[in-house]
């Protein structure tokens, strides 16, 4: 690790915002240097309550997050936010616009907001979102809110990070079949029907209620369904109460242990997966082997399974990262 990174870590642990921001940029590079920094920070993490906010594009995630910040700040708690928006699969560029809704907290230094491009990750987050959350945690934020990219049906990576997932929906998006499909509907701990002043809110409520009814466990957490109008703040304090009840439930029931295990397991999987991918696409030697194998498959000298086995064998023979 360079002297510069060491200094940034030291400053971060003293609460320096600029150091935190620069470490986040380093984390996004996913380089060995970035991982060395996270290793150093890790013992200082694990204290924050991590909340995920997900839902379709335009359902009001950022606006709700803005109001959640306000509520948590009124309780005297410090807040970190990571807001992810999609990167272009063609140019790698991104327009990160979540901050527009939350920029009123600029003079409050107990609020730290960071925007991220998804950079090729498809599960609703970016590869480095875990690490940015770790940095906010080490900076000492009590509450960390992670806002996913606009999510449809299968973007469920948020459960790898968040202890409590708030799933937003809005009136008028499909019929009751959509609510009983697998995927995103299964991950909500708190359901919020936003824009509840629009036509169809009651119907949406009934559909969600039916879907969740079928899921009911005799003594488990029963996800509440709440109506809100995030633009005016109506219903937001109930959302905060439900988030806190869920957190209390996790601790009192002991489910927090399974919740953590599930998250750490997924994080480890992600790191391993990404390290392998990184090797294949960044390291010249592996890149050459990869290209050679693609060529061999193309010429039908071998099949993709054999090629993959050879690559994996090659990778596990190597040491370090």
């Amino acid at each position: 690790m360079t002297q510069d990174t060491r200094k940034l870590i030291k400053q971060l642990l003293k609460g320096n915002r600029r150091a935190a921001a620069r470490l986040m940029t380093l984390a996004e590079s996913m380089s060995p240097e970035a991982h060395a920094a996270i290793k150093q920070l890790y013992p200082h993490t694990g204290k924050a309550h991590i909340i995920g906010v997900t839902g379709p594009p335009g359902s009001g995630k950022s606006t709700l997050v803005d109001k959640l910040i306000e509520e948590f700040r009124a309780q005297g708690r410090t807040v970190g936010v990571v807001a992810v928006d999609p990167s272009s699969p063609f140019t790698g560029g991104a327009l990160l616009g979540d901050r527009i809704r939350m920029n009123r907290f600029a003079s409050d230094h107990d609020v730290f907001i960071r925007s991220m491009g998804s950079r090729g990750s498809l599960g609703g987050l970016a590869w480095a979102t875990h690490d940015v959350v770790h940095i906010l945690d080490a900076l000492g934020k009590d509450i960390i809110i992670v806002e996913t990219v606009g999510a449809g049906q299968a973007e469920v990576d948020i459960i790898q990070i968040a202890e409590t997932v708030v799933l937003l929906s809005v009136p008028g998006l499909g019929d009751d079949i959509q609510t009983i499909k697998a995927g995103i509907m299964e991950i909500g701990n708190v359901f919020v029907i936003n824009k509840a002043d629009l036509d169809g809110a009651d119907r949406r409520y009934a559909e969600l209620q039916m879907a969740l009814e079928l899921d009911r466990k005799p003594d488990g957490w029963q996800p509440p369904i709440l109506k809100a109008i995030a633009t005016t703040g109506e219903g937001v304090s109930e959302v905060v109460k439900a988030i806190q009840s869920h957190h209390d439930y996790l601790i009192e029931s002991g489910e927090i242990a399974q919740n953590r295990e599930r998250r750490y397991c997924a994080q480890l999987e992600t790191i391993v997966e990404h390290s392998f991918i990184r090797k294949l696409f960044v390291e010249p030697e592996e890149q050459a082997l990869f290209q050679q194998l693609v060529q061999e498959v193309n010429e039908r000298k071998t099949d993709p399974y054999t090629a993959a086995e050879r690559l994996i064998l090659h990778l596990i023979k190597q040491k370090g990262n």
């Binding site: 140019t91 901050r99 600029a106």
Partner: peptide, 25 residues
């Protein structure tokens, strides 16, 4: 052009702009 653009919207105070620049690095 492949850049990551953080768009902060209308009517920003100097403080909002400087703080966003810092947090977004």
């Amino acid at each position: 052009a492949g850049f990551e653009v953080i768009y902060t919207g209308l009517r920003q105070t100097p403080e909002q702009i400087a703080e966003a620049a810092l947090q977004e690095d």
